[in-house]
Design a protein around this nucleic acid. Structure first.
Length: 503
RNA sequence: GGCCUCGUCGUCUAGUGGCUAGGACACGACCCUUUCAAGGUCGCGAUACGGGUUCGACUCCCGUCGAGGCCA
């Protein structure tokens, strides 16, 4: 039975690199019908914060990475660690080290300057139990070090193949701050064993921790899990992706309006591919096709352009009601609309209630109510233009504003004269006001404007000024589509406004 | 500095001794078109370098260089 774990430290928001590691663990578990365990490594009490843990859980859920069973927290397991620390100490496999931090730092510096590998000198390793006891009673600070035997550690990495280390080069490993508080390598070794983890799938940055953990496992008589070290996600400068490269947390991407499906699909392709030319994958397909053997060995630069493209792709594939529902919080945030129903006023409720379908909204500026259906009509016009949900406000704002602000020069198509332009606007107003309310449809409008435009020799002479009059922008959906959604009355109002501008 | 890992278009990648080195994003051109998108067609563009092994190396071996990670 396969059992894997994702073991984040709650010292920051869930990072995209960590999320990817979690994701590959998840895929591996599901593929092999195994368990995916979540272990919060919160032994660093100062840097660990509950809000970070919350963010990690929320982000994993949002991505659709469901963990199995309960959540383990290292902070709740100190008894277990204490037992093993005592065992190591009793067997003299570990010892108290009283060297001060500054002292060690200085040593390291010196070794480095001499061109040697920094390595603990072993000063306290020779202290007898009595001497150590005495120092402790004097109240001297100590940490616990593991007597690392000098040997060759070889393990078969599932992604990289044979990896070899000579542990003689590394010196005695710091394994605990005290008898109760383990340091990373010890806690990881103990937890992986206690939780019966079969496969450790983690970032490449842990490769050099692996021999240390193996040594500890051997000392404690644990069995050894299989290892797979996945290549890291890199920033533009090819260094490990971090905050200085911009947005890195999953919650930040969510906020910007990336869809979880897009992010999942994109992350999967960073470092994995099925060996075919297929690029679009649902979670189910990924689970079906995933294999560690298909993982890339080299680090991949996080290329936001491809993510944007993929997000646009998924937006285009999203059913319009669902997409509109997702866009509404952004429109509210931009102060363009408000929920009429007070109960629906908070963002999260809007997203979750199925009530949304019959709900109404209020245009903030005019106070006019607008139905969900109408909202869908608006969003639909932008479905294939949207890369991120957060762009929706800027794109659609003219639907919610009374007066558009634009330079009147924008109304001019190519080198029309003022006179021609005025004529066009007048003609538009005439044509549109003659259409019956029930015929105010895009197709009918288009037909009328096209034949009239062709008569003028250039369709742009009508279409362009109308488009600008309605949207106030140089790029927008087609004017007839906008007009239909806007309705006859508002369409005429906007044209009048444009005519005013031209006076 | 030591150890470890990695090295195919700008980016993500396919490829496991014989291929015009394939695809995707980005970029450019064209088509569609009232603008912007979307869509379609075409194009640009890579095996880090040097030695081997071999009839033949992107592919295997050695070295160099480069990048990253860990020791912190």
């Amino acid at each position: 039975m396969v059992k894997v774990r994702f073991a984040p430290a709650p010292t920051g928001f869930l990072h995209i690199g960590a999320a990817r590691t979690a994701f590959f663990n998840y895929l591996f578990a599901k593929k092999n019908k195994g368990d995916f365990i979540l272990r919060i490594e919160d032994t660093d009490r100062e840097r660990s914060k509950p809000e970070y843990e919350k963010d990690i859980l929320e982000s994993l859920s949002w991505l659709g990475l469901k963990w199995d069973k309960k959540i383990y927290r290292q902070s709740e397991r100190s008894k277990i660690y204490a037992k093993y620390i005592k065992q190591l100490l009793d067997k003299n496999l570990a010892y108290h080290c009283f060297c001060a931090e500054e002292e060690l730092k200085a040593q390291r510096q010196e070794q480095l300057s001499r061109g040697e590998a920094p390595k603990y000198s072993g000063k306290c390793a020779v202290l007898s139990k009595k001497e150590a006891e005495k120092l402790k009673n004097e109240g001297k600070n100590s940490i616990i070090r593991f007597r690392a035997p000098s040997k060759k550690i070889i393990f078969q990495d599932l992604i990289r193949g044979k990896v070899e280390f000579d542990t003689g080069l590394m010196g005695d490993i710091a394994i605990a701050k005290s008898e109760k508080t383990p340091l990373y390598n010890l806690a990881a070794a103990i937890d992986d064993s206690e939780m019966k983890i079969t496969h450790v799938i983690r970032g490449e940055d842990h490769i050099s921790n692996t021999p240390k953990q193996i040594l500890i496992q051997q000392a404690l008589g644990f069995s050894q899990p299989k290892y797979a070290h996945i290549a890291l996600i890199l920033g533009m400068d090819k260094s490990k992706l971090s905050k200085r490269h911009g947005a890195v947390s999953i919650s930040e991407y969510k906020k910007q309006g990336y869809l979880s499906e897009a992010l999942i699909n994109f992350m999967a392709l960073l470092g994995w591919n099925p060996g075919t030319e297929k690029e679009i994958f649902s979670m189910e397909e990924l689970i079906k096709e995933f294999s560690l053997k298909k993982m890339t060995k080299s680090g991949a630069i996080f290329n936001i352009e491809k993510l944007d493209w993929m997000n646009g792709y998924y937006i285009r594939k999203t059913p319009i009601e669902k997409l509109t529902k997702m866009c509404i919080p952004y429109l509210m945030e931009n102060g363009l609309i408000e929920a009429v129903d007070k109960i629906l006023n908070s963002k999260s409720k809007i997203l979750n209630k199925s009530k949304v379908l019959n709900s109404k909204f209020q245009i903030k500026e005019s106070g006019e109510t607008i139905t969900f259906e109408k909202m869908c009509d608006i969003v639909r016009l932008f479905q294939e233009r949207l890369k991120k949900l957060s762009e929706i406000g800027e794109l659609t704002d003219f639907f919610f504003k009374e007066e558009l602000k634009y330079d009147k020069e924008l109304l001019r198509w190519k080198n029309m004269t003022d006179e021609e332009l005025k004529n066009s606007l007048e003609k538009l107003e005439k044509i549109i006001s003659e259409i019956k309310e029930k015929d105010f449809k895009k197709e009918i409008l288009e037909k009328l404007l096209m034949s009239e435009g062709d008569r003028a020799g250039d369709r742009g002479k009508l279409f362009w000024p109308l488009r600008v009059a309605l949207s106030g922008k140089k790029a927008s959906p087609g004017p007839c589509e906008i007009a239909e959604v806007l309705g006859k009355r508002k369409t005429l109002e906007k044209i009048k406004w444009a005519r005013e501008l031209m006076k």
